[in-house]
Structure formats: structure tokens, C-alpha cells
Nucleic acid binder design. Structure first.
Length: 434
RNA sequence: GUCCGGAUAGUGUAGUGGCCUAUCAUGAAGCCCUGUCGAGGCUUCGACCCGGGUUCGAAUCCCGGUCCGGGCGCCA
């Protein structure tokens, strides 16, 4: 049984006369009485199947007339070049099989004739993804992942998988999800940070991980989720400048690659992708604060975290990707390396899109004594971190790294209003299903 | 968490106290139609988030709840 020989995108008018088998969803049928059209949709597009009533087998006509929208069909037939047909060809069927019948009414309209709200779409995500514009986002996301992996492998990185179930909640200030782990208390990990760093003491030197992170924060915005995919790297014998260079080239290359391999998806979305120019502008925290103050847009003191209003002002002023560097040490985590000559300033950085933060990273503290001291000064108890600190006592190379939010990268690349559009099955404060 | 806005057929919407037996589109069922491509024409079906209150009368006003959207906060 052959259920498909060609996708829609592979059929062309010059295949006139050849037999093909299409399979997909019944996008719509148009019955004009004497002539009947069935439009079959697969992941590459639409194909029209044409049946002239007088010249078509009765059983085929009955099957197609009884077809509910979105039923799954397999159509065997001959390609006929036809100027009157969409895309210049149509299929004259010799058989039409219904592989699965769809119920009616549908939870939303995949043809796009009637709008639907994000919440409705997410409730029936399987059906939403039949809309070409929704599917295109995730085929592009896949290309972004492929590109990022290619970049990392080409630079000598090893892909790793670190645990998502962890024992300690003392990693930092963010809220973690507690879970039951046999007789013990455990948590879902908020970041692979500590494990990436432990791996730097092994001599593996360059690692990356693409995996989920979990944050139990009550945030409820169009750029936050409680489960996200983080693209994380850690690199030995490198400083913050080295990993910023890697980050900007990885991001720019992802844009370039998507533009090359996702032309169909980009045209479905009506986008003309602009590859950001590297190197990205570097703006120090102090410069950013001065810019905002001069414009009367900031009431912050040096040392405060940058608030959303200031972040948006900077983004709209700068207008392209940029790095925010040289953050006050006290607003960055304990593992962020301070400058030798001015310890109140750190080698931490954020990668910013004009609309939001995409990534944050730093050169890390690799000196055991300094790390313990920094932990204590941020109110953490080093005893809870023994599994981590141990790796710093037996020869830890200097290293640096970053974590990049995949959803935000795709969201900003495609100009999506809500990060939920860029995640197949988003998890937020309210949504746990599907 | 907080502020602002919202919730009407399966979906998307109109409707600011009586004109609502609730609009339109899409959909579904049926009929007509040989080139549709958001096909067209005709008929039919299908809805006011939940609970209280005000009023002669509530989809509409008030209170509480639930859910949704946006801003901010939170996000080492």
C-alpha cells in the first residue's frame, strides 16, 4: 500500500500524464454540480483534484461528496497540466481513499477564512498547526536549531545532556518547581548552569546543551513562559568577549540559514528576513544608564537592575541587536567574574533584541575561594553547593558561557506578538494542557 | 501579584436598558449550478461565562467568581 508518492510542492505542470499518489487533509471541496473540486493539503501546500461528474467513476464522486472537511485522504491520479487550475496543474483521480474521517464542526478553521484567537488555537493546537502560517513557525524553529547545532559542532563543541531533576533549590533566587522524587524532595532545574560549569573541569572544554528549563515565577507576559528551551554553551580558556563573538555569529548565522532553507515558510508568513549585521553594538551598563538619564527616561541609580521601561527605551533608540555589558557585580549571579581592577563591575552581559532580552552570559568565576566568597556575599550557603564547588578545587580552567532563549529568538526573528506563538505547547501560569 | 480592557452559535463578530423571537461571516444539513480557486444563489440549524442584585423590563447597569488579552511587577 503506497499512501503517498509526492508532496504537493513536488508536483509541477511538466509532470503532465504521470501518476501520483497524494495524501493529506481535505482542505475543502467545491461542488459546482457538473464539476467537483477537492483541495488536498499536505505540509508543502495545496493540490487541486478535479472531477468532471460525467467522466468520473460514481464511487469517487460519492466518496468526495460525502467527505467532511479535514478528513485524511489518499488520492491516486494523473497529473494534468491545466492553466485554469491553481499552480498550473490538477489531479484527475482514479481512486480516492478516506483514511480517517474528521468530526464536525471543527474546533477552528484551518483554511484561515475565519480568524481565531490565540487561546482557541492553543486549546486545539493540533488543528491550529494545520494552518500553514502556524506550521511555518515550527519548521523555521527546526531550521534555527539545525543552524545552531551546525555552528557549535563546527567550532568544536560537544553536545551534552544534563539532569532536569535536581536536588537543590539553592541555586539562586528564582522560584523552582518542587516535585516528589521517591522519598526525597527534588526540583525541576531552572538552568543547566552549574552542570555546564562542572563539565569545564573535565577537559571537555566546549559544551552545548539545548533543553528545557523550568521557572516557577508568577510572571504573566507575552515574553515569559514557565517552561522554555534554553540554548546553553560553556567554553573553557575563553572570556566574555570570546563568547559574545560566538553568540553574535550563531544568531546571525541562524538568520542567514533560515533565509536560505525556509523560503517557502517565510513567504507563507509574508516575511523578508533581514540578517542582523555583526559585530553587534556593545553598550556598557553605565552608558545605557546615561543614555536613559539624558533622555529623562530613567530614575534608576547605578547598581539597580534595568527596568522594563528603560529596556524598551534603549531598544527603540538603538534599533538593532546589541550587547549590554559591564553590569554591576551585585545584580549578576555569584558565578559572574568581576573585573580585576574594579570588582564592583562584572564581566556579565546580556544580548538584547530591541524588544527584549534574548540571552545572558559572562565570563565565570573559576577561583574556588572567590566563588565561595561571592556566594556568601549574595546570601547563599556554600554547603548546599558542595557537588558544584568540588569541581573547582581540583583544577578548573577559566571559562565563559551563555544561555539563549530559543522561543524568544524565534519570536523576535519572525516578529511574533506572543512567545506562545513560538512554542508548540506552551506552559504558563494558567496553561498546563495540552 | 497588580492595573486596565474583555467574555454573545463550533469559529470570528455586531449589539450601551424595551427596536433582541439577538447581527453578519464562516460552518453544518438540504436544493440548484461544468472551471471553482475566500466560488455563487436559495432554505434550514446553531449562542448572550457562572452566581447574586437593581428594574415593570437586563446580552446591556451593579456586586462577587471564573476564564481570556494587554501593561507593569517578579524573572540570581
Amino acid at each position: 500500500m503506497i499512501l503517498r508518492t509526492h508532496y504537493s510542492g513536488q508536483i509541477r505542470p511538466d509532470m503532465d500524464g504521470s501518476e501520483v499518489v497524494l495524501a493529506g487533509h481535505a482542505h475543502e471541496t467545491r461542488d459546482l454540480g457538473g464539476i467537483l473540486f477537492l483541495v488536498v493539503r499536505d505540509r508543502e501546500g495545496l493540490s487541486q483534484v478535479t472531477m468532471v461528474a460525467k467522466r468520473t467513476e460514481r464511487s469517487i464522486l460519492e466518496t468526495v461528496r460525502g467527505l467532511s472537511r479535514e478528513s485524511v485522504v489518499s488520492v491516486r491520479g494523473k497529473v494534468k497540466a491545466e492553466a485554469k487550475a491553481p499552480r498550473g496543474f490538477e489531479i484527475i483521480p482514479s481512486s480516492v481513499q478516506v483514511l480517517a474521517r474528521a468530526d464536525s464542526p471543527l474546533p477552528l478553521d484551518p483554511t484561515g477564512k475565519v480568524d481565531c484567537e490565540l487561546d482557541t488555537r492553543l486549546d486545539s493546537r493540533f488543528m491550529d498547526l494545520r494552518r500553514p502560517a502556524s506550521m511555518a513557525v515550527f519548521r523555521i524553529e527546526s531550521a534555527v536549531l539545525q543552524s545552531l547545532r551546525q555552528t557549535f559542532y563546527s567550532k568544536g563543541f560537544t553536545e551534552v545532556c544534563t539532569p532536569k531533576v535536581v536536588a537543590t533549590a539553592t541555586e539562586g533566587g528564582t522560584a523552582l518547581f518542587p516535585i516528589s522524587y521517591f522519598e526525597k524532595e527534588a526540583f525541576l532545574n531552572q538552568s543547566p548552569q552549574l552542570y555546564k560549569q562542572i563539565l569545564m573541569s573535565t577537559g571537555l572544554d566546549r559544551v552545548f546543551e539545548i533543553g528545557p528549563i523550568f521557572r516557577a515565577e508568577e510572571h504573566d507576559t507575552r515574553r515569559h513562559l514557565n517552561e522554555a528551551i534554553s540554548v546553553d554553551i560553556e567554553m573553557s580558556y575563553a572570556d566574555h568577549d570570546d563568547v559574545m563573538a560566538l553568540l553574535e555569529s550563531a544568531v546571525a548565522e541562524a538568520y542567514r540559514f533560515v533565509g536560505e532553507v525556509c523560503q517557502h515558510e517565510l513567504s507563507v508568513l509574508g516575511l523578508d528576513l533581514h540578517v542582523p549585521k555583526t559585530p553587534f553594538r556593545r553598550v556598557t551598563y553605565t552608558e545605557a544608564l546615561d543614555m536613559a538619564r539624558e533622555a529623562g527616561r530613567a530614575s534608576m541609580e547605578w547598581g539597580d537592575d534595568i527596568d522594563t521601561e528603560t529596556e524598551h527605551y534603549l531598544g527603540s533608540t538603538i534599533g538593532e541587536h546589541y550587547f549590554l555589558t559591564d553590569w554591576p557585580a551585585k545584580v549578576k549571579p555569584y558565578y559572574t567574574q568581576p573585573y580585576d581592577d574594579r570588582p564592583e563591575v562584572s564581566k556579565g552581559f546580556d544580548l538584547m533584541h530591541p524588544t527584549m532580552e534574548l540571552a545572558s552570559g559572562a565570563q565565570r568565576v573559576h577561583d574556588y575561594g572567590l566563588l565561595v566568597e561571592r556566594m556568601k556575599s549574595q546570601g547563599l550557603d556554600p554547603d548546599g553547593f558542595e557537588f558544584y564547588l568540588k569541581a573547582f578545587r581540583y583544577g578548573m580552567p577559566p571559562h565563559a558561557g551563555w544561555g539563549l532563549g530559543l522561543g524568544r529568538l524565534v519570536q523576535t526573528m519572525l516578529g511574533l506578538e506572543n512567545i506562545r506563538d513560538a512554542v508548540l505547547f506552551p506552559r504558563d501560569r494558567k496553561r498546563l494542557v495540552p
